[in-house]
């Protein structure tokens, strides 16, 4: 299969420095692979067979990250960054994907860092798409993907080309060693700009800035009445989709 592994398309939200007055400072922070990106490479390697994995990333940060984990080559849109409007970010990624002919699968990390980009990319490619994918396999030429549905998992058969959003359920196993990392830096890199993709950095969506939420991030439940407290908790957990 010919697979595009989309990696390192956002900054790590834990890297932003929060000011006393609720400002957010991103100075010096580069784009980072997210916690689900290792799962992207795992799924890609599981189904690639004798095909090719192409890494695709945007902006600054470590371009060779996917190459150190099995990508034969890497495309990078150097002047793109994560935009406020995830549709704009996804459009950049989609435009780069469309430059590659005969793609069978696009895999992106199903990252809580920015679900918007994942959704928008799935929509813009318009292919069959599955999120929350924990593993995939080729069986008699057909692609079978397993996705998390709460505590259960669901196995789907999907005909390509497909978009999969891969979700990690553990820390990266078998991270590449120094030698592999250095070798990966010698693999081919295609550097693209927004202009090459016929895109203008844009969007009429604007951020009005950040602030502290009115309510603290943790929702406190009074446990004096344990029955009521547990009822409130269960309702909240149901809303969060973890029950």
């Amino acid at each position: 299969m010919k697979i595009i592994a989309v990696f390192k398309w956002s900054r790590n939200p834990q890297d932003g420095r929060v000011g006393m007055n609720g400002t957010l400072d991103w100075r010096g922070v580069k784009m980072a692979p997210n916690d689900d990106d290792p799962a992207v490479m795992e799924v890609a390697n599981a189904i690639v067979e004798d095909g090719e994995i192409i890494g695709l990333t945007i902006g600054d940060g470590d371009i060779a990250w996917a190459a150190a984990r099995g990508a034969a080559r890497t495309m990078v849109v150097t002047d793109a960054q994560t935009e406020t409007d995830s549709s704009v970010t996804a459009a950049v990624i989609a435009a780069a994907i469309k430059r590659v002919e005969g793609v069978d699968a696009v895999i992106i990390g199903d990252s809580v860092w920015d679900y918007g980009v994942v959704s928008a990319l799935m929509g813009q490619l318009g292919w069959p798409a599955v999120a929350g994918v924990v593993s995939a396999a080729k069986e008699q030429g057909r692609l079978r993907v397993t996705r998390k549905m709460g505590t259960a998992s669901q196995v789907l058969e999907v005909e390509g080309p497909v978009v999969l959003a891969a979700a990690a359920n553990r820390e990266e196993k078998n991270a590449p060693g120094m030698k592999e990392v250095l070798f990966a830096r010698k693999k081919p890199v295609e550097r693209l700009t927004m202009a090459d993709l016929g895109l203008a950095p844009a969007g009429d969506v604007s951020s009005k800035g950040t602030r502290f939420p009115d309510t603290p991030p943790a929702r406190m439940i009074d446990g004096k009445d344990p029955v009521a407290a547990c009822k409130e908790l269960m309702a909240a957990l149901r809303s969060d989709g973890v029950l």
Partner: peptide, 8 residues
């Protein structure tokens, strides 16, 4: 020596 045992 890297994580895979290669001398660097």
């Amino acid at each position: 020596v890297d994580s895979k045992g290669n001398t660097m």
